[in-house]
Nucleic acid binder design. Structure first.
Lengths: 169, 169
DNA sequence: GGAACTTACCTGTCCTGGACAGCAAAAAAG
DNA sequence: CTTTTTTGCTGTCCAGGACAGGTAAGTTCC
């Protein structure tokens, strides 16, 4: 990991968010790896532990991902035996995701890892500093969520409606 | 996007970071999509515009990703014609990544998009609130960076050294 | 009842990202 | 000079996130 030299001047807060997010997620991934879980898998399990059996659509909404991603995460957790699916008696389209005993066995470790992650993230900040930081984060989140698409930036003529920069030729 | 109901209580700051990061990145991706760029591609270009020709290893360090990821991004940008590689005269292993005129043509748009992103992120926060938020973000980043792996959480016996939860059986 | 719409899930594909292995060039050690 | 180590890049494998498209089950309305 680099010393994170001084960032670009443009959009300092956005850059800071992006950088913080990356290293934070990296740290989470490292802590989680000892458990054999990948990031997001543990979030799904935590939801199940907290709120009991859930439909995939609900899990997707809570994880902030879409239903397709949720499908795959559930499939992997199911293959690993941490989760089981049972048909929703109320709706034959839906299935309920349930944590198995093997899944429950991870709970303590996962919660410990999250506590550790929080501790490392917070470092030596005082409780009041933590409060301020949390308030800032929530405020920023609110702002971004409030975005219902704003004005557009002009595009260079050459690029209007062009293809995306994608796979190698 | 969901209403992002109240988060889990455990590790409020970590959760807040994770959620903010996701929606912020999503927003960035959406703004960028009109340009045909994917997230990270524009960061690489911005580095080139700011600091001129760079070696991939340096770009990797500055983007916070590794050299393998940088290779792929450079390949795609190169295929799209926004970037060119020329051998480093000082070191025949290395190649210098250079922005082409087509790449330079994106500069204004990309910078506008970042300005827009910053504006949306910041919302109606006052300058002093922004300062506080930025300071918090930087402080958190510092904390996470300072992590040189700490104590370990206990693992459930069943999982010690087990496989990771991976591909479907 | 039957047609049209909506919802829940699944699949395929693309991009990014991390980890690891391999190769070539450069630098360091002998 | 030769051997060893380090550095720079690439390919591959596998993860998640997002999008588009498709199927089956539910719902609404005629």
């Amino acid at each position: 990991m680099n010393p994170t030299a001084e960032a670009l001047p443009g959009g300092p807060i956005s850059h800071a968010i992006a950088r913080l997010a990356r290293i934070h997620q990296l740290l989470a991934g490292r802590l989680l790896r000892d458990l054999g879980l990948h990031p997001s898998q543990e979030l799904l399990l935590m939801r199940l532990w907290e709120s009991g059996p859930q439909r995939q659509a609900d899990l997707a909404a809570e994880l902030g991902t879409d239903s397709a991603g949720t499908t795959r995460i559930v499939q992997r957790l199911e293959a690993a035996g941490y989760v089981r699916r049972k048909p929703d008696p109320k709706d034959r389209r839906a299935s309920l995701v349930v944590s198995t005993p093997a899944g429950d066995a991870l709970r303590e470790s996962v919660e410990c890892i999250w506590a550790q992650l929080e501790e490392l993230t917070v470092g030596d900040m005082s409780p009041s500093e933590q409060e301020v930081a949390l308030a800032s984060l929530l405020r920023l989140e609110e702002n971004v969520l409030a975005t219902e698409e704003g004005s557009r930036c002009g595009l260079p003529a050459a690029r209007r409606g062009g293809p995306t920069v994608s796979k190698r030729a």
